[in-house]
Design a protein around this nucleic acid. Structure first.
Lengths: 351, 351
DNA sequence: CCCGTATAGTTAAACGTTAACAAACAATAG
DNA sequence: CTATTGTTTGTTAACGTTTAACTATACGGG
């Protein structure tokens, strides 16, 4: 491995000079600068990341802590993060909470258990010397996290923090749900079932509000029997559909495509036709949505963009911290609410 | 941040002693060792990764270079890698070649273009000081890579290296394809279409061989018109199905679930019934397979396990290199061929 | 009482950078 | 011809570890 010292020896200058020309600092005559750059090029020198990190307390690495890499939403967000990182010269260290054997998706409000697995990861991350952290939630759990570890900037992607000082980027759940519900109403449906996650889940709550607002604005009374709380999974959809079918519901809005898939399961099993016996709408635009038959009308979540924006927020935070230190230390964290895109397919039809 | 020095000061010993007890080296009396550990605990001291890395030339980090994080197979493999890394105390730095704007999935044999994007990443990786590299291929491309950069151990996951000295783990494509074909034959089909990727693609070739072997062993002549070369994508399946339907084929074996989905598309469009008018089998067991209707009979690839095994191979390589240096420097790289699991569902029926 | 030998702990040099400061030198003004 | 300034380069001390080499202390045996 070729080091600064080697280059300096070859060029007959001090290491400091070489360091200076490489970082464009200090004053160096054109002549020496050119010579040094030539040798650097020739020998294929690259600064050693660890030495630099040790000295500068800056590694140009960020950590991404994902609740569950296997969840469909995670990889696209990570991709978005990496895109932004690539543009800004950062590398990404990935952590996956789901990997730890004690992890559970059903720790709804059990902070203690949750932290028993998050905290060691946070420690690791801290001592690895990353410049920042992005926390990337799934959506089944309901614990709000606050991993702002003392000196490390942090932002949340697809998650709601507890502190108002940590920036986060999420989607506009309420309006998206409202838009979908309005669409279903526009097709003439009045008895519309809602299939959500757990009743106390953040996402469920805001999407439910959107659903209710649409009903309200259309002058349709909101029947609590038309709300089914599931667990985001295929079986929930099946159960919800069963309940709704018995009640003469004509359309249902499942808050995830997988649950919508469960609705299909039930209808198919009973020999009924999706879109004629019951219309169904989903949320996510997972890949399955377009393979279902009839293809599923759903809401596309701008996952890649969520990743990009949260990473952008993070590099802002990192660089501004470098700049004016504790200037206005406690600036309120930015919050970005991304709109979703309505994807019309063939699962909701005119009544 | 609390450092060795801090701990040493509190305990009234030298940094060396603290370092020793932490790493269990040298001689230290029980009394001091206990005291030091207590203080370490109390202050929450963790060694600084960069300082340690700089000194020891060992970071306990590995880099994963993925061709395409968005491909369905990538996240589970990464997950498997991370699982093994977690068990062995490594962190994972992720790179995604697909991210680079100049990347193309259709660089079949254009090594130059390909290396113009791979090489800088390799450089980065090298100077980041990772202890090892896992290269994780997609399956559309056809370039064999050899990223064994001078001092860094490397293994390939779901990819075939050029050099016989780099270990790799893949699936037993030929036997898996044969098994599936035998199953289709056992259902009474004799005119079985094969839908593959590009004709010169490694995966396509070995799966085709398996298909042909099954036919051969069953005494069925192999008709080249029953082979359709696509590009792994949904549309290929559609086109293949169209061609085969006109030829009176009764079953087809698509080498990816997405292509199988394309077959469904065609049949549905023509008002035909999957499983009655034409049986279809896939490969991958992607999530869509179970949502298709009828659900798709397919081959499950042990992705998670592929990740784990390749990471295990890598940590072996890393630790043995630490041990006997250039002892038998050029040991032939291990190769692991994983079996796939046949998943019977409802898309192939008795003729 | 001295020597050899464990045992417990210390010192100091490295690892490859950066940054503050010092020094050398040349050019310009007075 | 000296003082002053400006430009270019060199010196040195960090950053937080690990580790080889060394020192000090205590203990028995002769």
């Amino acid at each position: 491995m070729v080091t600064l010292k080697d280059i300096a020896a070859i060029c007959n200058v001090s290491v400091a000079t070489v360091s200076n020309v490489i970082n464009g600092k200090g004053k160096t005559s054109d002549r020496t600068a050119k010579m040094i750059m030539r040798v650097v090029e020739e020998k294929g020198y690259r600064p050693n990341a660890m030495a630099r990190g040790l000295r500068m307390r800056r590694t140009n690495m960020i950590a991404v802590i994902a609740e569950d890499l296997a969840q469909f939403s995670t990889p696209p967000i990570v991709s978005g993060i990496m895109r932004c990182c690539e543009e800004n010269g950062y590398s990404v260290i990935l952590h996956n909470l789901r990997l730890y054997d004690r992890w559970s998706d059903t720790w709804y409000n059990q902070e203690k258990e949750y932290h028993s697995i998050l905290d060691p990861v946070l420690q690791d991350v801290q001592y690895a010397g990353v410049d920042g952290v992005i926390y990337l939630a799934g959506h089944a759990r309901n614990i709000r996290v606050e991993p702002e570890i003392p000196p490390i900037p942090c932002v949340m992607a697809y998650a709601y923090p507890t502190s108002e000082y940590v920036p986060y980027v999420v989607i506009d759940e309420e309006n998206s749900a409202r838009e979908m519900t309005e669409y279903i109403i526009s097709k003439g449906h009045r008895k519309i079932g809602f299939i959500g996650g757990r009743y106390d889940n953040v996402h469920t709550k805001s999407r439910l509000e959107g659903y209710q607002r649409a009903l309200f604005e259309a002058g349709i009374p909101c029947d609590p029997n038309l709300i089914y709380y599931g667990n985001w999974d295929r079986e929930s959809g099946y159960e919800g559909a069963k309940k709704f079918m018995e009640m003469g519901v004509t359309a249902c809005f499942a808050i995830s495509d997988r649950m919508a898939g469960g609705v299909y399961d039930y209808l198919i099993e009973k020999g009924l036709k999706v879109g004629v016996d019951m219309s169904v709408a989903g949320f996510d635009d997972q890949i399955i949505a377009s393979y279902l038959n009839p293809s599923l009308t759903t809401m596309e979540i701008p996952l890649h963009e969520i990743g990009r924006r949260s990473a952008a927020l993070l590099v802002d935070k990192i660089t501004e911290k470098d700049g004016e230190k504790a200037d206005e230390e406690h600036k309120k964290g930015a919050v970005i609410k991304m709109p979703c895109s309505f994807i019309e397919r063939n699962s909701v039809s005119e009544i």
